[in-house]
Amino acid sequence: MADIALAEQMSSVPDRATAVAKGGARDTRFRLLTLAASFVVLGIFAGVMASLLIGALPAMQHFGWAFIYTEAWNPVTEKFGALASVYGTLVTSLLAMFVAVPVGIGIAIFLTEICPRPLRRPIGIAIELLAGIPSIIYGIWGLFIFAPWFQVHVQTWIVDTVANVPYLQDIFGGPPYGIGIFTAALILSIMVLPFISAVTRDVFETVPHVLKEAAYGLGCTTWEVMWRVVLPFARSGVVGGAMLALGRALGETMAVTFVIGNAHHIQKSIFAPGTTISATIANEFTEAVGDLYLSALIEMGLILFFITFVVLASAQLMLRALERRAGSAT
């Protein structure tokens, strides 16, 4: 059909020279249009940074660097420090990666090596659906279903077991609320699982078959091939995927807001309630009175944007380098 449409377009123009000129002018317009759209993307990014910087300016001037390393959060006396939120953000995300990275790699190994072929696609899609479920659904599920179950069946038991063990009683101690840092981290790990397993699976598929076959030929077991040949080859891709997932976990808002407990102080126990940057903003932004309060929240947004930018940028650089290598290998 395309050729007919083109022919009609062409035949409606009287002669060749004007047709070429017209086409050229249309070309330029279209090209500029697409270029302009690309600049909109850049503009959004610049706009996000600029608006956060401008919004955060009053808080920056008022608190200086102390904002980052003080823990106080008191809207009444207008004393604000981001430390508790930054701590919560980092701890929940890192704990989540602690669970999600091995499990994600495990899923990728399962899908590429163990799973019967006809089941690969459906199971792969099911895992990816975990990434499709909106954040707020994880939140409501975590609050009403998971946290109460976890509190009664798991947390109480752990708290009792470690009650007199040095160190462990600090990490797992305290009253079992159900909600808290650990619950948030666990839900985050489920949410980012598909990002890790999808990227890992893709890089596993770039490993040349000859390498694997050679290893099998030497008598390696499946696990030895995966651990000694495939994983080292795919290392930068796996790390890139993990960073991508970390970037998502750091900025995740709703799921965490429901189950973190919103407590503005740092506690030793990972079962204790805490808060994260995104949860603080989501909870307090519309209720914040006073310019300094708003500005402090926006400065937290700026910190979050900065952290995720660094993580996401390094993830991209790793994955890009890998793409180039995969491109040159074939």
Partner: peptide, 20 residues
């Protein structure tokens, strides 16, 4: 590069941007 960063950037931050 910028687009892929925006793709995974925290949505709450884009909310702050539009708020401002």
């Amino acid at each position: 590069f910028v687009n892929d960063t925006l793709l995974s950037a925290p949505s709450i931050v884009t909310g702050l941007f539009v708020y401002e």
